[in-house]
């Protein structure tokens, strides 16, 4: 792991894969740390326009999670063939 048995530093294929996954790895690392614990400030009127806008925005984000997850699940069942199988 630290190059102890003379293992090389990196090979091109590994770099390619890493580039493909670097974003998701970073997202993963960020999400596994409580950075995103938003403070729920109840300052100001509860039903102010700003609060409502924020609520609508976060609701849409949650729905986006559902839609994106669905897209991923649908893609998993995607099974194209090059040639039509009789």
């Amino acid at each position: 792991m630290f190059g102890l048995n003379g293992a090389s530093l990196a090979n091109p294929e590994a770099i390619y894969y890493l580039k493909n996954y670097i974003v998701i790895i970073l997202i993963g690392i960020i999400c596994s740390i409580p950075i995103l614990k938003h403070k729920n400030t109840e300052k100001g009127e509860k039903n102010s326009k700003k609060q409502i806008a924020i609520s609508v925005f976060t609701s849409i984000c949650y729905v986006a999670i559902l839609i994106l997850s669905t897209a991923s699940l649908v893609n998993n069942s995607f099974n194209p063939f090059l040639y039509f199988r009789f």
Binding site: A7, S8, L9, A14, Y21
Partner: peptide, 24 residues
């Protein structure tokens, strides 16, 4: 998603295990 990366490494598709790969 991240699991796909791990699967590729785990099955040894890369031949040799480089330093970078072990960390990743």
């Amino acid at each position: 998603n991240v699991g796909a990366m791990w699967n590729v490494i785990e099955t040894g598709a890369f031949g040799e295990m480089t330093v970078l790969l072990s960390w990743v």
